[in-house]
């Protein structure tokens, strides 16, 4: 076991890790930040996406020791300090972009990265960027709408199309 320290959601946090400890397990079990989820074991589903030094990565395929010292943002660090939802989070609620909520943290983290890279994506760009995130509930329809809305683009209201 080795002590691993990272800046997580703006605060220095430490927990033990074996060589094989994955970043996602370090966050969930070491820091009890359980908002980051594990949906698969083949780097396919995206439920575990966090921002590592500002870039989205799949925390199930990164070793905790390897990124000792890094800055990590998880879903718990996206809302404002006063609890105000980010534009992406708020749009997901406004446009019913989530149902069971399990893929949601990864979706929000991915969408947040997308809008940082591309502030006004087209529908096709949104769909393409989310290629590494599987949602089984929504058919993606309202997720795509939510991301478009979060970028400030006009989107038909929910349940009024």
């Amino acid at each position: 076991m080795t002590k691993v320290t990272m800046i997580v959601n703006g605060k220095s946090r430490s927990a033990e890790a074996e060589g094989r400890t994955l970043l996602v397990d370090w966050l969930r079990e070491g820091l009890r930040l359980t908002g980051t989820h594990v949906g698969c074991d083949t780097t396919q589903c995206g439920a575990c996406i966090v921002h590592l030094n500002g870039e989205p990565v799949k925390a199930c395929s990164v070793l905790a020791q390897e990124v000792d010292g890094a800055e990590v943002t998880t879903i718990e660090g996206i809302a404002g300090a006063d609890g105000t939802l980010s534009a992406v989070q708020q749009a997901f609620q406004d446009y019913h972009g989530l149902q069971c909520g399990f893929c949601t943290p990864g979706m929000v983290m991915a969408a947040t990265s997308l809008l940082r890279e591309n502030p006004r994506p087209s529908e096709a760009e949104v769909r393409h960027y989310l290629e590494g995130n599987i949602c089984r509930c929504t058919g993606y329809h309202n997720i795509v709408k939510a991301v478009m809305a979060a970028s400030g683009q006009d989107v038909p209201a929910v349940a009024a199309e």
């Binding site: 780097t43 995206g46 996406i49 590592l52 870039e55 989205p56 990565v57 799949k58 395929s61 990164v62 991915a110 990265s113 997308l114 960027y129 290629e131 590494g132 995130n133």
Partner: peptide
């Protein structure tokens, strides 16, 4: 290749 998160690693 893969997806944006995979491409970052």
């Amino acid at each position: 290749i893969g997806d944006p998160a995979v491409r970052n690693r």
